[in-house]
Amino acid sequence: MKKCREFCDQFSDYLDGELSEADCRLIEEHLAECSPCALEYKSLRTAVEVCSQGISDDMPEDLRSRLKAFLKQRCSNDHL
């Protein structure tokens, strides 16, 4: 019988779909009956979800212009 800590150690792999069907089933059965682990899993999933949406890839316009000018100048003499 697995302990709560052992289930929690698999949550990251579970989120990534890296576990076997049997292991997924064991986790899902455990989560249905163990509220501390369900909370642990939910908090990990929430953390990953907000990280995936929370960091912008916006780039300042002046940085775009500088990169464009740099590449135009440096690549113009290069022939692939």
């Binding site: 579970y14 989120l15 779909g17 890296e18 576990l19 076997s20 999933r45």
Partner: peptide
């Protein structure tokens, strides 16, 4: 690899 209900990454 088993695609479980956890795979919100999809």
């Amino acid at each position: 690899m088993f695609i479980s209900e956890s795979c919100w990454y999809l």
